Amino acid sequence: MTPTPPPIQSVQQACSVTSAAPASTAWTGQTGRPTRFLLLRHGQTEYSAQRRYSGRADPELTELGHAQAAAVAAGIGSVDGTDKVSAVLSSPLRRARQTAEPVAAALGAGPVTSHEGLLETDFGAWDGLTFAEARTRDPEVHRRWLGDETVDPPGGESFAAVGTRVAKMRAELVAAHPGETLLLVSHVTPIKMLVRQALGSGPEVLYRMHLDLASLCIAEFYPDGGASVRLVNGRFPVTQV
């Protein structure tokens, strides 16, 4: 595996570039008001601390994970436009909801709504295994899975299938919330998929993008089909555990 790259910038450094353009036409050519997605990855669990696949497994946040959620809740108000969050949607899994709830409370954005489209990839038989363990268990499938987004883990879900359900969710949310700002609390793969779709890039970006736990990405989707990415892997410092 390639070394993990450093995050692009902190949330605080990114605040100056997250404002939506006030005009009805963006400088990149899109028209209308975009729906802004604040894409928050959940905090640490025992599985993530041990670098285990945790798709539909439902571990709770660790002490550090709760501290990460609290840091997001304390700092997200510094991100321009978060005072306009109209809804908070979360993966139904416990680690995402435990991250979403304190942030929603801090934003005064009302109750958290679960959305199946925000679920992590179903890793099937690999759930709970490390990378090395999954490779040892199914060497040929694992090798093909790393290079082909249409390959399913044994009993699981391909990245291509995740992309399809995420695209369906995105279209529904843009239609239902035109020009609004939504906080979506999810997992690494659905967030990467939404960033990929906003960039209009190929599958290789899934393997080259690093997202820290409790990190924030911001993507905007316009009613005419255009999109832009305003932040990738913004972090909220944890001061104590």
Rank of each mutant, 00 (worst) to 15 (best):
V17W: 08
I191P: 08
G202F: 05
A125H: 08
Q197L: 12
E204Q: 06
E46K: 11
A176R: 02
P237E: 07
T130H: 00
P190Q: 00
A198Y: 11
F131A: 05
H66L: 06
W145D: 02
M209L: 13
V112H: 13
K168A: 13
G55C: 11
A96L: 10
E63A: 15
S158G: 02
Q9P: 00
A176I: 05
Q13K: 04
V205A: 04
P22V: 05
V232K: 04
P102M: 01
A132N: 09
Q98V: 02
L146P: 01
A74Y: 05
A26K: 03
S19P: 10
H115N: 14
M1Y: 09
Y222W: 14
L93Q: 14
L213Q: 15
T136C: 06
S24L: 15
R196I: 09
K84D: 09
V141T: 15
A167Q: 15
H187C: 12
A176E: 01
G156L: 09
A23E: 14
D58K: 15
G156E: 07
V229E: 00
R196N: 10
V88C: 07
M1R: 13
E133K: 02
V88A: 09
S91Q: 13
A20G: 09
A26W: 15
T28Y: 12
G128E: 00
H142T: 08
V188L: 14
W27V: 12
T35A: 04
Q12H: 02
L38K: 08
T136N: 03
D148I: 11
I218Q: 10
S19I: 03
L231F: 09
D148V: 07
P154L: 02
I218F: 06
A227D: 00
A160R: 14
A20N: 08
A109I: 06
V85R: 01
M169N: 07
T150W: 07
A20F: 02
P59Q: 07
R94N: 13
A57Y: 03
L38S: 02
F37N: 04
L231V: 04
P102I: 03
Y207T: 08
H66W: 01
V185P: 08
A161T: 10
E157H: 08
G163E: 12
P178M: 12
A198N: 08
A70F: 03
D152P: 02
V72A: 09
A49P: 08
E180K: 15
S90W: 14
T130M: 02
S228R: 12
G77H: 07
Q240K: 14
W27C: 07
N233F: 10
P22S: 06
I218C: 06
N233G: 05
T99F: 01
I191C: 02
L89D: 05
P22T: 09
V238Q: 11
Y207M: 03
L89Y: 14
K168P: 00
D58I: 12
L129W: 04
S158E: 05
E120Y: 05
E101C: 06
A96Y: 07
V72N: 14
R52W: 02
R135T: 13
A167T: 13
